[in-house]
Simulated scan of single mutants.
Amino acid sequence: MQLESGAVVEGRVTRLTDFGAFIQFENGETGLVHISQIAHSFVRSVRDHLEEGQTVEVKVLGRDEKGRLDLSIKELLDEPEEMPRPRAIGRQSPQFEAKLRSFMRDAKERTTGGGGDRKGGKKGGKR
């Protein structure tokens, strides 16, 4: 069996690591499914998705410069219709925005000489 880029083959998970899973094929060759190629969603732990001894179907992505097989499980899965979006930060309350504008206006007046010294303390020299 020749494992070429684009081939879809079945193999057995022989070892799990923090960065992926090693898959062995009938011909004795082994390749790596990197953690980023396990699922479309974020994979915190490879062990949450795969077990040693499990038979899986993988797609051969190609070979790296050292001739090692790069594999993917994710490429064979249907893509979710819509990827989850990060939760948007809600608009601040109008009261907060009014207080912030007032604070900024007062700060500008203090720094441009609109009354009092810059430190807001007593007038008339250093302490």
Results as ranks from 00 to 15, higher is better:
K122M: 14
H40M: 04
T30R: 14
I23L: 10
R110K: 10
E79Q: 12
R47E: 15
L76V: 02
G115D: 15
F96C: 03
M83Q: 11
R85Y: 09
F42G: 02
D117W: 11
V58C: 11
G67D: 01
D70E: 12
A88N: 07
L76M: 03
K99E: 12
E65S: 09
S93C: 03
Q92D: 09
L69F: 14
F103T: 04
K119P: 01
F22R: 14
A98Y: 00
F22E: 00
D64L: 06
G20Y: 05
G90R: 14
M104Q: 12
E75Y: 08
H34P: 05
F25T: 02
D70Q: 13
L71R: 14
P86D: 05
F19T: 10
G20C: 03
M83N: 07
S41W: 02
K59V: 00
S45F: 10
D106H: 11
F25Y: 13
L76N: 13
I89M: 12
L77H: 11
E109H: 13
T111G: 04
V60S: 07
L50V: 07
R110C: 11
K59D: 00
D48G: 03
G67T: 02
L50D: 03
K99Y: 04
Q92H: 09
K119Y: 14
H49I: 03
F96N: 01
L61T: 00
R118D: 05
V46S: 09
G20I: 02
R85E: 13
T111M: 06
L61I: 01
R118Y: 12
K122I: 14
E97D: 09
L77G: 06
I73M: 15
S45P: 00
E29A: 04
K119E: 15
H40A: 05
G31Q: 03
T30M: 10
A88M: 12
H49R: 15
L71A: 05
F25R: 10
F19R: 07
S102E: 13
G28P: 00
N27H: 02
Q54A: 03
V58Y: 04
G116R: 12
A88I: 11
S72T: 02
Q92P: 11
E109Q: 13
G114H: 11
P80T: 13
R105L: 08
D70Y: 04
V56N: 06
V43C: 12
R68W: 09
A21S: 06
K99I: 11
T55A: 05
T55V: 08
